[in-house]
């Protein structure tokens, strides 16, 4: 096994899977359960499943799809999207999901982070930070699938989340998303050096070397990627893929 987790990220919206570029231009990838089953068969370290439209739904997270995913996954799964209450978290965990990711709620109702961490354990609570560099070079945290700038500075926000009891930070670079040109190593290394909880790099991975750099150069504890694990070749044909355990072991030596 490799000592760093390598995590496919799936983006879900109204019963389909999509992959974005810079949080826009969603390309349809396919059926979520089918993709999840393939990743399970490939024995991925972990899976992140984000419902990018759930915040718009007054009914909250789509429990039916979450239940189906949980029953197909024999590895840890993190679900994010539309979570705003303790009851929702409790229900999602009972379905067989290990971790929940908070994005909008972490900004708008930070007390939920503290309460959830106390009740369900820090390792269950992931903060998904979508970040973008401002004109002035400051990294700011965005919510609502990158549409809304919270104006909160990324490192300060991360420190606050750590203090509140978050167990892990999923740091997604909006500008790098879907570009497959490598992670934003700048913000990853700034966060990894100033935060003690694990930082999971996301946004921009195009090949194995990118994964290695996020870990070895920027100090990420784990790496996540979307495009790299759902596309194949320069024409971006949809093909679910994942490195073998032997390849990953070599990669992080």
């Amino acid at each position: 096994m490799s000592s760093f987790r390598v995590i496919p990220v799936l983006l879900y919206k109204r019963s389909g899977l999509y992959k974005s570029v810079k949080f826009k231009d969603n390309i349809y990838i396919g059926d979520p359960i089918n993709a999840v089953k393939i990743f399970n068969d490939k024995e991925v370290d972990e899976l992140i499943f984000l419902d990018i439209d759930a915040y718009n739904n007054p009914a909250g997270p789509d429990l039916d799809i979450i239940k189906e995913i949980a029953s197909e996954c024999f590895m840890p799964v993190c679900y994010g999207g539309g979570i705003s209450s303790m009851d929702q978290i409790r229900t999602i965990l009972q379905l067989g999901i290990e971790k929940v990711s908070l994005n909008r709620a972490a900004v708008l109702q930070p007390s939920l982070v503290a309460e959830a961490s106390r009740e369900f354990g820090a390792s269950t609570i992931v903060i998904s930070m979508d970040v973008k560099k401002s004109f002035w070079g400051k990294y700011e945290v965005y919510i609502e699938n990158g549409k809304k700038n919270s104006k909160l500075e990324a490192i300060e926000f991360a420190k606050k989340m750590e203090d509140l009891g978050a167990g892990e930070l999923l740091v997604n670079s909006i500008e790098k998303d879907g570009t497959m040109t490598g992670y934003d190593l700048d913000i990853i290394s700034k966060l990894a050096s100033q935060i003690t909880i694990p930082v999971v790099a996301c946004g921009g991975a195009g090949n194995l070397t990118d994964l290695r750099e996020a870990v070895k150069t920027a100090g990420a504890s784990a790496v996540a990627a979307g495009s790299m694990f759902v596309f194949h070749g320069k024409h971006k044909a949809v093909l679910i893929n994942y490195p073998t355990s032997a390849d990953l072991k070599k990669l992080f030596l």
């Binding site: 949980a70 029953s71 024999f74 965990l93 379905l95 067989g96 999901i97 290990e98």
Partner: peptide, 13 residues
Amino acid sequence: GNLGSIQNMLKKI
């Protein structure tokens, strides 16, 4: 704890 996932795996076998 997460009891659903244990039941899921038992069901699988």
